[in-house]
Amino acid sequence: MRPARALIDLQALRHNYRLAREASGARALAVIKADAYGHGAVRCAQALGDEVNGFAVACIEEALELRESGIRQPILLLEGFFEADELGLIERHDLWTVVHSNWQIEAIEKAALQRPLTVWLKLDSGMHRVGLHPAEYRDGYQRLLASGKVAKVVLMTHFSRADELDSTRSAEQVAVFEQARASLGSEVSLRNSPAIMGWSQLFPEQSANDWVRAGIMLYGATPFEQTQAVAERLHPVMTLESKIIGVRELPAGEPVGYGGRFISERPTRVGVVAMGYADGYPRHAPTGTPVAIDGKPGSLIGRVSMDMLTVDLTDLPHAGLGSRVELWGRDVLASDVAIQAGSIPYQLFCNLKRVPRIYCGG
């Protein structure tokens, strides 16, 4: 069997969720959209069990997969509903929905529902993607409650630059949100992972009854490029690994891989690893991208191929056929690989495919 695989540590997942609760002092939704960022939504939801306050997914298809798998905790649809006829499914399966547009408010007002909904009303505080304009926000809130179709409204927004710790944009967005929701006495959800981890000073009075949304930190990866205190306490959940399936001894001056972008400057031992961009490893990871070979630091050389990549074994004389290679995990942080590849850990995880997931710590 091909040795490429992704090990998913469910105990690390639970640790990171508890850290999100501790760091925020609020209730936390575990964001498991996009198949839990490539980690497996159903297994991750089952692992978090009864201790989770709720889950968040992108759309109703993802929510129904969880319900069909026996998940009964609250599930929030982060993109809301796309057609008015989805409201019947939202009611039937006891889902929570984001509302970010006036047409969605109108659809709720017109809907024939037997039970009132829980709505998270999204404000566009400066992301300028989706959300009600600040001038419309209070009216939208009042319309939802007056409709008789809504039992509770949670007030929310989303930050555009919370992963930039030197940016003033998050503070500006908080100010817009506070002005728009003044005197509206509802629960609040402002913080995503970077805001939970790096912006506690903006939320000194957040209530324990409010909500945060733990996404990338749930999987043990940092959204920041610099060192950060909460990030140091995260446990990586996914370890992407494979083995060396071939070894080449090359003299100085020989090219390696497609395009010959790497040329050996000395006699070089090259290890061939069963891992490539068809598995989700970033094709644009350059020579020098870190790996761990039998637990020791190593590096990528040459271009990543569809099914294979190459690493330098010259200074690792005990490594060879069958040696374990960690592409990211505890020894090689996904965030470090992402920086080298001009990507982000979110994309690395979500791009994972073909590689079997092996769960532990369940």
Rank of each mutant, 00 (worst) to 15 (best):
L76P: 04
A63D: 04
E51H: 11
A56H: 06
I71F: 09
S69R: 12
G49D: 03
F55V: 12
L64R: 12
P74K: 02
E68C: 00
R72N: 14
G49N: 03
A47T: 04
S69K: 11
D50S: 14
R72C: 12
Q73W: 00
E68K: 12
F55G: 10
D50K: 11
L48V: 11
G49C: 05
D50E: 15
L76Q: 06
G54S: 08
I75C: 07
A56S: 15
N53Q: 13
A47N: 03
Q73V: 01
N53W: 13
N53S: 15
L76I: 08
A58W: 14
A58Y: 15
L66F: 02
G70L: 04
S69C: 13
G70S: 06
L64S: 03
A63R: 02
N53P: 00
E62W: 10
G49Y: 07
S69M: 03
I71E: 03
E65S: 09
L76V: 15
V57A: 10
L48Y: 07
I60Q: 04
V57M: 12
R67C: 08
L64K: 08
F55C: 09
E62H: 11
L66R: 02
Q73L: 12
L76C: 05
V57K: 10
E65W: 00
E51V: 14
L64T: 02
R72Y: 02
I75K: 06
L48T: 06
A47V: 04
L66G: 03
E51K: 10
F55K: 05
V52G: 04
S69Y: 07
R67A: 09
A63N: 05
L64V: 10
R67T: 11
E65V: 12
L64E: 11
Q73H: 14
D50Q: 14
V57C: 12
C59G: 13
A56N: 06
A63H: 05
G54M: 06
C59L: 11
I75W: 07
A56T: 09
R72H: 14
V57N: 08
E68I: 00
A63K: 07
E61Q: 13
V57I: 14
S69F: 02
E61F: 06
A47H: 04
V52N: 04
E62D: 12
R67N: 06
E62V: 09
L48H: 03
E61S: 13
N53M: 08
E61N: 13
L66H: 02
E51N: 10
I60H: 06
R67P: 09
Q73K: 14
I60V: 15
P74T: 06
I60P: 05
I75Y: 05
E68T: 04
R72W: 03
L64M: 13
R72A: 15
I60G: 08
E61G: 15
I75F: 10
D50W: 00
Q73Y: 00
G49A: 03
P74R: 01
E51Y: 12
C59E: 14
L48Q: 02
E62A: 09
C59Y: 12
L48W: 04
V57Y: 07
I71C: 07
A56R: 03
A58P: 00
D50V: 01
L64W: 01
C59H: 15
L48C: 09
Q46P: 02
I75H: 09
V52F: 00
P74S: 02
D50A: 14
L76F: 13
A58N: 12
G49Q: 02
